[in-house]
């Protein structure tokens, strides 16, 4: 079983991201479960959502305690809550930021994880370019597909199309593909080095 925890703020589409990730995994032939952290969400307040992906039906109903991957939609949360809590030694870290992971003080975490498992991506900037709004979730799903290779970028695009229509669908799919290509480039660079 692969378990993902997504951190963000109310209004950034955290719950939608977990749901779309489960839809993408399902479209990719896997079993998947997504659920929010059930808080009284308010715009701007910290929000957590979870996704589990497995080859068999998922029965677990506990929150994700030891994630295989953590997605951080808002890097200001790094100073506020323990977003890396329980992250597995061979896990993945994906942070939405225009800065580097070193600049965010995550150098130690990057060194602990296997090479190429921690990636920064400017998902908000990508979203501004392609969607016209600073909602980073679709771009981060594209980045996640490239980072973990757990789901295909086409299944991410199909999942986005179940939720958005017209120019929002097209913009989000383009943003997801752009982030996917970016992370693929970073990772091939990392493995070449």
């Amino acid at each position: 079983m692969f378990q993902i925890r997504i951190h963000g703020r109310g209004g950034q589409g955290v719950v939608t991201a977990a749901e779309l990730l489960s839809v993408a995994a399902n479209a990719f032939g896997r079993h998947a479960q997504a659920f929010p952290s059930f808080g009284s969400e308010r715009t701007g307040a910290p929000v957590v959502a979870f996704c589990r992906i497995d080859d068999r039906p998922i029965r677990l109903r506990e929150p994700v305690l030891e994630p295989d991957a953590v997605i951080v939609q808002d890097s200001t949360l790094l100073r506020q809550i323990d977003v890396l809590g329980g992250l597995r030694p061979a896990g993945y870290l994906l942070v939405n930021t225009a800065a580097t992971l070193d600049d965010l003080g995550l150098g130690g975490v990057v060194a602990r994880l296997p090479p190429g498992h921690a990636v920064a991506v400017s998902a908000t900037a990508i979203a501004r370019t392609h969607v016209g709004r600073p909602v980073p979730n679709a771009a981060l799903l594209g980045a996640f597909a490239a980072l973990t290779e757990l789901i295909s970028i086409d299944s991410v695009a199909a999942a986005i199309a179940t939720r958005f229509h017209g120019h929002l669908r097209d913009g989000n799919v383009t943003a997801a593909r752009a982030a996917y290509e970016h992370v693929k480039g970073v990772r091939s660079g990392a493995s070449a080095a």
Binding site: V23, A32, P36
Partner: peptide
């Protein structure tokens, strides 16, 4: 049905 745990869970 358990509130949130089931009502808000997305699954097949």
């Amino acid at each position: 049905m358990d509130g949130f745990v089931l009502t808000h869970a997305v699954e097949e």
